[in-house]
Amino acid sequence: MASKYINITLKIWRQKDAKSKGQIETYKLDNVSTSSSFLEMLDQLNEQLVGERKEPVAFDHDCREGICGMCSLYINGRAHGPDTKITTCQLHMRSFKDGDTIYVEPWRSKAFPVIKDLIVDRTAFDRIQQAGGFVSVNTSGRTMDANAIPVAKHDADRSFEAAACIGCGACVASCKNGSAMLFVGAKVSQYALLPQGKVEATQRVLNMVRQMDEEGFGNCTNTGACEVECPKGISLENIARMNREYLVASIK
């Protein structure tokens, strides 16, 4: 494919460790192929830094195909960069122009403290999941037959759409309140929509919301930023469903 090469200026948040104070550093990077992904561009920068005997920029990444949810990055003021419905690893440099200045910052949230440079700690999500994001069924395999309970296709599809969440945290990062409700709403919805999950729906939503609050996430003010920036297009409908589930659970 016809790839061009561009020169860019990067303004990257550097922070030695959780305790240190960080700051924006400026780097010039030349000959970036427009066919490169954003993370490949960062690889290139790191190769350059290592060549100069400098410490490379630490950033989270793994699958590089938009599904593991490990990559993050707030690029030019937006979670996962300017394009929508993709993760940073799927963002390509053709979205930028020669001579552009690109700001790269970590997710910002009290519940996601910075570990180093662009890496943040997202274990708060794990703890929310541990508080109730499951169906309490043993792993014996001796449950009932998979087809014993039919599930309306519509419900199964909605459940899948909610379950498509990759837990990247873009919702928290882009929400002006640092709220995690899209993440929690999606998980609550996935189970609430299935008969297997309904049994313990009351306890689940109460526990997950309690944990969410304890982690220090902000409140939802329905701005909808999360839905726009979510790489998997998780709908706000899921937050409403959580609100509903919680209301019912609270007065039960």
Binding site: G141, T143, A146, P150, S159
Partner: peptide, 24 residues
């Protein structure tokens, strides 16, 4: 054991694709 895997996953709330009759 392959069949048990599907039973297990459905019980855990894995949203497999279903047909209009509600079956897998």
């Amino acid at each position: 054991v392959s069949g048990n895997i599907i039973d297990q996953c459905v019980a855990q709330g894995v949203p497999f694709a279903r047909d209009y009759g509600g079956l897998l």
